[in-house]
């Protein structure tokens, strides 16, 4: 796969490390246990468009939010997670 890093340009996926779903919000410290269970463990795992976190570990080291189709691997966008 090739991932278009917004900072470095398109690069092979061996330069990146994958974490998982990007559309998860870390609950507040006092959130109920169920919210934490859901954040840490439960995943939509869609067959289709997936918003996910990749780090350009062997490049700019930025965490990116990549929109990718899990059926075709087509990448639609890659943006810096912090921006």
């Amino acid at each position: 796969m090739r991932i278009p890093c917004p900072h470095c340009g398109e690069r092979g996926n061996d330069e990146f490390v994958y974490l998982g779903a990007a559309a998860l919000t870390r609950p507040a410290a006092d959130a109920p246990a169920e919210a934490w269970h859901s954040y840490v463990y439960l995943r939509d795992n869609p067959a289709g468009l997936h918003s996910e976190l990749w780090q350009h570990t062997h490049g700019c080291r930025r965490w990116l939010v990549v929109a990718r189709d899990t059926r075709t691997h087509a990448v639609f966008s890659a943006t810096d997670a912090a921006v």
Partner: peptide, 8 residues
């Protein structure tokens, strides 16, 4: 740490 800083 990069995850914690950049994402969280």
């Amino acid at each position: 740490m990069e995850f914690v800083h950049q994402v969280l």
